[in-house]
């Protein structure tokens, strides 16, 4: 895949959020996207047509992360109000609120079966919430982190989370073990490669690091952008050929996965690019920024 195929052309601008947009996520098939921001709302968009579909309002504070189930029926979201919200997509109602985090919740994810929501909080814990039962208590609290947990990823058998304490910890449910990969730098965001063998960690020393998950080996480092003080996303392209990351100056960077060279970088937003999400199949990408817009990029 050459640099030409990269989604560098702005296809749509999704405007509607007041204030910073903190997260933007494609749904499973990439037809829709969700965004959440400082205006305490979650918005559902059709990014390809640039249409705002629905707004979900219930959060008391900013929405920091949002995730949608594979069947598009439920949303989970979290934010500054220390709660994890479990929404019904069509009605826009909150089905359940999971309270328990002692402070802000940074990230949230469904598992594969959408039966568990795992949330990562500033309170140095990961909490797993059961969506099937009516219990509002977490079914598990993982509190081995030493600092705020910034990001969480789930595989079929593992919970992977990155923390400001510099570790990316993998909790293997099947094996019953915890692997802690200390990167030495606060981890801002982690993202799994599509083949599931690597994890990309965005560190606060303005470096993205690619780790081999089986060995914990550092495979590559990606530099050039600025990431020092904001929670910013990074991800790999759907072909795992490039690494995408935003910068605090509003730029967007594409690195070659293997040789870590900057393939492309351009100014995508006028302010910090908080979130990037890559389309699962097409060469399409959405970015969210503090400037209040969500932009859709296509090749």
């Amino acid at each position: 895949m050459s640099g030409d195929d990269l989604p560098t052309k702005e296809a749509n601008v999704l405007k509607g959020h007041e204030g910073a947009v903190l997260t933007a996520r494609f749904n499973k098939d990439g037809n829709y996207c969700l965004s959440g921001g400082k205006d305490r709302t979650i918005r559902l968009w059709n990014p390809h047509r640039g249409i705002h579909i629905k707004t979900y309002k219930s959060h008391g504070r900013e929405v920091r992360d949002v995730h949608v189930t594979p069947d598009n029926s439920k949303i989970c979201s979290c934010g500054g109000d220390r709660q994890v919200f479990y929404w019904d997509v069509s009605t826009g109602r909150v089905i359940r609120k999971f309270r328990g985090h002692d402070s802000e919740v940074n990230a949230v994810k469904f598992n594969e079966y959408a039966s568990v929501v795992v949330s990562a909080g500033y309170d140095r814990s990961l909490r797993a919430w059961d969506c099937r039962s009516h219990s509002t208590e977490p079914i598990q609290i993982i509190d081995t982190f030493l600092d705020s947990v910034m990001s969480v990823c789930l595989t079929k058998t593992e919970i992977i989370a990155g923390s400001v304490d510099g570790t990316v910890r993998t909790f293997d449910i099947r094996m019953g073990r915890e692997l802690s990969d200390d990167l030495g730098q606060p981890v801002n965001c982690i993202s799994l490669s599509n083949d599931g063998n690597c994890v990309l960690a965005s560190c606060l020393d303005s470096t993205l690091r690619l780790l081999d998950r089986t060995t914990g080996e550092l495979l590559q480092e990606y530099k050039g952008h600025t990431c020092k003080s904001f929670k910013m996303d990074c991800c790999l392209t759907n072909s795992d050929a490039h690494v995408v990351g935003g910068s605090e100056d509003g730029q967007l960077f594409f690195w070659d996965l293997v040789d870590a060279s900057v393939v492309s970088s351009f100014r995508a937003h006028s302010s910090v690019v908080t979130s990037v999400s890559y389309h699962p199949k097409d060469n399409c990408m959405i970015t969210a920024s503090v400037d209040g817009s969500v932009r859709v990029w296509k090749a």
Partner: peptide
């Protein structure tokens, strides 16, 4: 870095 450690963890 990265430094890998392994612990027991009970889900």
């Amino acid at each position: 870095f990265p430094k890998r450690e392994e612990f027991q963890w009970r889900p």
